[in-house]
Design a binder for these strands. Structure first.
Lengths: 146, 146
DNA sequence: CTATATGCAAATGCTTTGCAAATCC
DNA sequence: GGATTTGCAAAGCATTTGCATATAG
């Protein structure tokens, strides 16, 4: 999805386009991994030194509501993370040691096996799927030290 | 899993069994749905009026670490929820309107399609999977009012 | 007897909100 | 011009932590 297409989605909903909002959106679009609100804030600050953190939060929430952005929570009581999803989205395996995100090319909700039964009694809006464990490197380090 | 078997898991790790801890464990074992820390606290209070909320939190964390309890976060920036899982665990579809949890009889990580590729580069410790949307009743109400 | 667990109270840190001023369309 | 958005500051709220005391094994 292009930046202009994303803008179209916002305009269709009667949302205005401010410099701050467009920078938040662009930041997420250019990122290759899910970002925390703080990380987005830091990036946006480079362009607009006067943004406030709450503006970033408000925009992240708006973009998520509109469906342009996907929010994921680490199960480990960690902070929320946001990523641009456009038309397709991703899931991640997250290392409990180094916190690296490894992208999965698989989505449980696209599995017929699961959806067939569920869709009859439930209309799916969104979903969360995350795997936690140890990446190859950290697994190696752990087995070495044990 | 019986209560005594669960105790065995704790003893094996050198954990002590206190009245508070055993009540937290029993509460989760007897619950048919995931509970928030506050809900557990309220239940435990009925038996031990003097428990503190942080003791409940500490025990929930311990039981989760040990693997007896499964923690789920609602993606909607809601509070964490805990449920006894014993040997098998569950996933839920959560209604965005009435917040009802509908149990799924399906787990993405038990799908060979997904695990084959992942296990080569990652050792899975736990995972989170939740579906959000509208249950049959709330879907009906929404379409009626629209 | 010693490690573990508890209670209390205070702190932490992410996220949200009220309000007046600024700004987009 | 009128609704939306921003910035500031303060509040909210789930969760965590330090520390002295109590308790399990």
């Amino acid at each position: 999805m292009t930046f202009d297409e994303a803008l179209g989605v916002l305009k269709k909903r009667g949302q205005k386009m401010t410099p701050q909002r467009s920078t938040v959106l662009r930041t997420l679009m250019e990122s290759s991994r899910p970002m925390t609100a703080q990380e987005v804030y830091r990036e946006v600050t480079k362009v607009h030194p006067h943004v406030s953190l709450d503006t970033v939060y408000r925009n992240l929430t708006l973009l998520t509501d509109v469906g342009l952005v996907h929010q994921s929570n680490l199960q480990n009581r960690d902070v929320a993370r946001f990523e641009f999803q456009g038309d397709e989205h991703r899931h991640y395996a997250i290392c409990l040691n180094c916190h690296k995100s490894i992208r999965l090319d698989w989505c449980p909700v696209e599995t017929k096996l699961m959806t067939q039964a569920l869709r009859k009694q439930f209309s799916i809006v969104k979903h969360a799927f995350e795997v936690y464990g140890y990446c190859a490197e950290c697994r190696f380090l752990r087995s070495a030290s044990a």
